[in-house]
Design a protein around this nucleic acid. Structure first.
Lengths: 162, 162
DNA sequence: AAATGTATTGTTATAATATAACAATAACTG
DNA sequence: CAGTTATTGTTATATTATAACAATACATTT
């Protein structure tokens, strides 16, 4: 059974998501001998602080406000760094980044993305991984990354349309 | 069981794919009261003629050669038109378009994309649709489109690396 | 601490992708 | 044929992303 996270439930305590992600990130960086520098930490906080995928250029003002350089390469470097460690996901169809799955164990993931309000809810995909791994193995394909995006209207936005 | 098409098999008669897609496109346009104009047909041929996803700007020279206007809006319009009818797929992570699944019945689809040679092989996903539909229904999500991308190395490119 | 090498960040410029806005033409409809 | 709609042409610009190199910070060895 596929389960989703609570992105569509606006009641949850989201600070918990962010701080969980941060602790996780620190551990992962330590394991890999990488440094979670102030810029990287800020970008991680910003991305995880939103259930809506954020584009690189949406992050720049916050970087500037925090006193960092805010040219595009700065934010793209931080995003690439976090992405490579599996700490954030890139939503290809939106050119935007999102965090907030279960921060204790990074994993391939899928998203339901509302085309109206842009909210992205992560789907737990363990059940799909079997299928993906099998088809990859069958064809000698070395699976390295997944972009799984379900696009449509969330229940809130469906309601507002009627 | 997931099956893939023959994109990784360079021996197949690809003209057949293209002409199949074209016939299918004509029928679908007729059904929907849409016109498959010369520009649209050319773009369809070009996209289906390649197993590698093609970016919009890669198509422009061919449009120019064929005597059409070749400014970006021209090709984006044709791509949007074909995409909306389900005749081509957009690969979000590559900003590129691809055709060539079973042209007789358009359907949601998934791709294995080689990050080295850029070839995209379509995966038949009927087995996954059940899962996707269920999770969408459970959360009142109105599923409209899917971007399913498996990224990695195809067997050819794995061989070349060793 | 000084010297050295590596990683990170700053900075400028530009590449690559995509769309807005409006004019001109072609195709459909009564 | 006149009126309407759909398509294409055209110019300009918005959005997303990276190249290239300089400057600084950090880590390691001596």
């Amino acid at each position: 059974m596929l389960e989703i996270n609570n992105a569509f439930n606006s009641d949850h305590n989201h600070d918990h998501c962010v701080s969980g992600a941060l602790n996780n990130a620190k551990a992962i960086c330590k394991e890999n001998g990488q440094r979670l520098t102030p810029i990287r930490e800020l970008v991680l906080r910003l991305v995880w602080g939103s259930h809506k995928p954020l584009g690189a250029y949406e992050l720049l003002p916050a970087l500037a406000e925090a006193g960092f350089n805010s040219a595009p390469p700065t934010v793209y470097r931080a995003l690439d760094f976090l992405h490579q460690l599996g700490l954030i996901h890139k939503i290809g169809s939106l050119n935007a980044f999102v965090g907030c799955s279960n921060p204790e164990h990074p994993h391939p993931s899928a998203f339901m993305i509302c085309t109206e309000c842009k909210t992205a809810a992560e789907i737990e995909t363990s059940e799909l991984q079997t299928s993906f791994n099998r088809v990859a193995n069958t064809h000698g394909f070395q699976l390295e990354e997944e972009n799984i995006e379900l696009l449509g209207l969330c229940s809130d936005c469906r309601g507002n349309e009627s």
